[in-house]
Simulated assay, not measured.
Amino acid sequence: MKNFITHLPKVELHLHIEGSLEPELMFELAKRNKVDIPFDTPEEVRKAYEFDDLQSFLDIYYKGANVLIHEQDFFDLTWAYMLRCQEDNVVHSEIFFDPQTHTERGIAFDTVINGISKALDKANKELNISSQLIICFLRHLDEAAAFETLQQALPYKDKIIAVGLDSSEQGHPPEKFARVFAKAIEEGFLTVAHAGEEGPAQNIWDALDMLKTSRIDHGVRCVEDPHLVETLAEQQIPLTVCPLSNIKLKVFKDMQQHNIVSLLRSGVCVTVNSDDPAYFGGYMNDNFYALADTHELTKQEIAQFSINAINASFIAPVAKEDLISAVRSYTASH
């Protein structure tokens, strides 16, 4: 099964590029940019990656982002992630970035997006890995800050496929950003949103109704509402689920308790993703391995996660068909 997973073509739909900042690169960039970080060694950073909840993770995540200053830093960060994609046979990735994490520190929007985009272009040419970019609004900041970020994104419509919503879910319901998302849709962006991770199932309904989202990021608390689960399955509304992240942030006690497999078997379009892999203990293959180690999954079910991700992606329809064929023929040969 491990061998099958390793070589299975995969698509990742829930990855925060700032969350792929490995401790070694953090140290390298801190040194290069003469930034003080509250750790002495990469090992010390890893030891700090024990979280009680989403907020305790976010506190250290924002500190880590302080080392990202120049276009080259964002390039190096993104290129390192794309090399991991190559290693894990991820053939397409839809990547979140948080402009406000950087613009609030005085880093220009174009510095961030140009560094990331150049690495993605290089990966497309040299590694044959396609990608798309999604800007996320930080939900703990106000609506005005989100509108300002949307304004900054408008000259880069050719580089950005969608807008999303991340950061602290508690106390920041989807309705807070309904007007921003309406404007983003008017400007031609697709929409996604984190919902139903720490927040209740109602946040998923609200993200779908108020933000008109194409898919829901996380969404594991949908099971609190059987009617919602039925609706997700009937309408094939995708959930971009992040198994290792959910364990690390105590959404579930352990992987055996995780509901992604039962949701898959209920016909929900669930997908496997790595979220913030440097902080949560693994990239795509690690998430698949962790599920296969704790759940009795068939190869067809493992492959279905990939097919779901292709269907849920923002790839052109013809390219989707090609990728689905590749996954099906790979599975048939195993």
Rank of each mutant, 00 (worst) to 15 (best):
H218W: 04
C242L: 07
L228E: 00
D158L: 07
A146F: 02
I129E: 02
M255D: 12
H172N: 07
L165Q: 06
D217L: 06
D142E: 13
N203S: 07
F189L: 04
G171P: 03
A178I: 05
H140Q: 10
D225Q: 11
Q170L: 15
H227Q: 14
L150V: 06
I161V: 04
N114G: 12
L228A: 08
C222S: 15
H227P: 05
F189A: 05
I247F: 09
I135G: 06
A195T: 01
L239W: 08
K159D: 07
C242G: 07
N124G: 10
S214C: 11
L211R: 06
E230A: 15
T231F: 15
V229H: 01
I237C: 06
V251L: 13
T231L: 12
I160F: 06
A146I: 02
E175C: 04
E143S: 09
T240D: 03
A162G: 10
V180S: 01
F177E: 00
P174N: 04
L239Y: 11
K122N: 12
W205G: 03
I116P: 07
G199V: 01
K118E: 15
S168D: 06
K183H: 04
Q236F: 14
Q235C: 13
A193K: 01
I161S: 00
D121F: 14
E224K: 14
D209E: 13
L150P: 09
L232F: 14
I216C: 04
R215Y: 08
V229I: 05
L190G: 04
G188E: 03
D217W: 01
F137E: 00
G196V: 01
V229M: 04
A201N: 03
E197T: 06
D225H: 11
M210S: 01
Q132N: 08
D254N: 15
S168Q: 14
P226H: 10
H218T: 00
I204K: 02
L150C: 09
F147R: 02
M210F: 02
R139P: 12
L141K: 12
K250L: 12
L244V: 10
G199Y: 04
S117D: 11
R139N: 07
K125V: 14
E175M: 06
E234H: 15
K118M: 14
E148R: 10
C222L: 08
L165W: 12
A146D: 00
H227I: 08
P243F: 07
F181R: 00
P173W: 01
H218Q: 04
L141Q: 04
A146S: 08
V251F: 06
F189V: 02
L244W: 10
S168A: 14
L165N: 08
A207I: 01
L138W: 04
K176R: 05
Q202V: 09
E169G: 09
L190W: 09
K212R: 11
A153Q: 04
I116C: 07
N124I: 05
E175Y: 06
C222K: 05
T149M: 08
I185A: 06
D225M: 11
M210W: 01
P155Y: 07
